[in-house]
């Protein structure tokens, strides 16, 4: 991705600089694709789906700005998560307004473009590693993923049983 001059204002050398304009641009493209997917996945009208995507866009853009300029560093996805929460917790006056816009959006359809980019992004190196990895590491990888999932699920289940 190209660096953009407009994003160089307010230099903070200590942290990785996010080039805001290219991110905003890419988010527009991704939101347009996402809008089309919402029309397939939900019963929303084109206008309502556009509103929903615009609402999510605003949260993402806000998160990127915070990741770029906030006095302490958090990854942009963490800022976006926090902004999404702050926009909809019950004790803020605007929660119902925000929910009215984004509530009908189908979250699963939102994840589809990301995985399409991920499939197209598989690099030559990754293909080489996958071929070289051998069956033992592939088996271990399955147990690693199962281990983190079962470990967390069993502990959560036990704690929920005790605290309920």
């Amino acid at each position: 991705m190209s660096a953009d001059n407009a994003a160089e204002i307010g230099v903070r050398p200590a942290r990785e600089k996010i080039a805001l304009l290219p991110h905003f641009r890419d988010l527009v493209l991704i939101s347009v694709i996402g809008w089309a997917l919402q029309l397939i996945a939900t019963d929303m009208s084109p206008i309502a789906a556009l509103g929903g995507m615009a609402g999510l866009y605003a949260i993402c853009a806000g998160g990127l700005v915070l990741a770029r300029f906030a006095p302490f560093y958090l990854p942009s996805v963490a800022w976006i998560s926090l902004l999404g929460i702050a926009a909809t917790v019950p004790f803020v006056p605007w929660d119902q307004a925000v929910l009215g816009v984004v509530e009908e959006i189908d979250f699963l359809a939102l994840s589809v473009p990301c995985l399409a980019y991920a499939g197209l992004a598989v690099s030559r190196d990754e293909v080489t590693i996958a071929k070289r990895t051998g069956w033992k590491l592939a088996v271990i990888a399955v147990f690693v993923l199962a281990g983190t999932y079962l470990g967390s699920a069993v502990i959560a289940d036990l704690v929920l049983r005790i605290t309920d």
Binding site: L27, I30, L56, G63, L99
Partner: peptide, 19 residues
Amino acid sequence: LIVVAIMPFIAKFGTTIGP
């Protein structure tokens, strides 16, 4: 673009955590 493309999804997740 993988990270950028997951952002609207993360935002939607945030708005489900809030309520």
